[in-house]
Amino acid sequence: MKSTFADEIVDLLPNLRRYAFVLSRSLDVADDLVQQTCEKAFASRSSYAQGTNLSAWLIRIMRNTWIDRVRRDRTRGESVDIVDRPDAIFTDGAHDTETHLMLGNVASALQELPADQREIIMMICVEELSYKEAAAALGIPIGTVMSRLARARTTLAGKLDLN
């Protein structure tokens, strides 16, 4: 059976929730953001070009929703530090100490990056957007995507001693 637009969006809810959490660092705000993003997605479904990356389209909507939210509402909900509470959204590893530690370490290094670098590294390395899709989502040239992403990754490698 073919999956519906709604099914595809529901399948992406974990990705949306993860991305919303990285953007907002707040559980309440993240879930709100996911919901607003889905509302907009259903309302403007005609602007989605079938066959293109749905995840990239949704992330773009979410990012604009987030920016608008920051514009009008300087209170951003109660911050939850992913470093202290990786289990807040990640279910795996809550009982597995090693995974938990790893998640904590990487999350901690990630949080030390500037927001624009954190955002792009998540888009490309975790959400698997292409450079082109990320450039479209952020409204910046591909060259900027690449320089920002390379900076983010070399900094992260330094923090985590991957060199």
Partner: peptide, 15 residues
Amino acid sequence: TRALLAGTFGTAKVS
């Protein structure tokens, strides 16, 4: 860096 991020966040199950 990509493998680490993907492995840490990408495969962890998000509730």
